[in-house]
Design a protein around this nucleic acid. Structure first.
Length: 285
DNA sequence: AGCTACTCCTGGTAGC
DNA sequence: TGCTACCAGGAGTAGC
């Protein structure tokens, strides 16, 4: 699924194609993609505006808009499961799943494509009107080892759902939580307030190094759906240690990778590298 | 506070 | 072959 590294890859690829472009027209193929904003309100918001800046916050993609040099709201996109963003020639085949199209003043078209329709592309006055409360950026200055120690201590939650919670930390999803926990040798059912300081520091380093390595590889692809915006598969899926590797040997110790379900989410781990918590609500592993 | 269940969606796949 | 049933899952919401 698109998580921080995939979203960052998208932003880097579409930014040079969008910044400075004026939006000449807009078409909406699936109204719910607009997240409650009416079609007329969306069109009023974007048509005639210029894209001033393309940036990322957590898994959100933001297009700052301006008119006559002044700020004029923004579009906040979220790819959710299967969303993609492309800037293409207008006469190219749009495919069956285009939810929003923006005609650009260079003759090309921006397309928000989303097979499963979970993605969002919302016009708002300010991005904060769309974001939920978001935790710090895992690759930003605010996310320090000390911050994570304190954050884990003040919560009493299992690590897996806590790290998936965007209000705690913004940008991790199912894949990179599993990968980071394995790298930090921490069991996903461990309670956050029982993680010792040194283990918390390992987790901090693991989150940053996992995300940085994934960005370097332009994210991960594994189904036909998950591609970089250029249509090329990302490369990080070849580095997965646990995600999707259940039944296969751990690359570190050889034990068979297991898959459990935590909060309705498939969760992959090595029970030797990531020892079970001593006393917790989780099943004995 | 934190957990579970449910919802939104559809292509892919397993089972028959 | 062709049908049906179920699955994946980010995030929001409701209920306990």
């Amino acid at each position: 699924m698109p998580e921080l590294p995939e979203v960052e890859t998208v932003v880097r690829l579409i930014r040079p194609d969008l910044e400075g472009r004026r939006i000449e027209d807009a078409r909406v193929g699936w109204a719910r993609t607009l997240g409650g904003v009416s079609r007329p309100a969306f069109e009023r918001g974007v048509v005639g505006a210029r894209v001033a800046r393309v940036w990322r916050r957590g898994k959100y993609i933001v297009l700052d808009l301006e008119r006559g040099g002044g700020a004029a709201g923004c579009v906040v996109g979220h790819l959710r499961m299967t969303g993609r963003m492309h800037v293409e020639p207008r006469d190219s085949d749009p495919g069956a799943y285009v939810r929003v199209s923006l005609d650009l003043d260079d003759g090309r078209v921006f397309r928000f494509v989303d097979v499963r329709k979970f993605g969002r592309f919302v016009y708002a006055a300010r991005p904060e009107d769309v974001f939920a409360e978001l935790g710090p950026e895992p690759l930003g200055a605010e996310f320090t080892a000390g911050w994570l120690r304190a954050g884990l201590r003040r919560k009493r939650r299992m690590l897996k759902p806590l790290l998936l919670d965007q209000a705690f930390l913004a940008g991790l999803g199912n894949i990179y939580v599993d990968e980071a926990l394995h790298r930090a040798r921490l069991h996903p059912l461990r309670l956050s307030n029982r993680v010792p300081g040194p283990a918390s520091d390992r987790l901090h380093a693991a989150i940053r190094s996992t995300l940085a390595a994934a960005i370097e590889h332009e994210g991960s692809s594994f189904d036909a759906f998950y591609r970089t915006p250029e249509g090329q598969p990302g490369g990080y899926q070849d580095q997965f240690q646990v995600y999707g590797r259940d039944g296969r040997p751990c690359r570190t110790c050889g034990r068979t990778i297991r898959r459990i379900v935590v909060g309705q989410r498939g969760t992959h781990l090595c029970t030797r590298c990531q020892p079970a918590p001593r006393r917790s609500a989780g099943p004995a592993l």
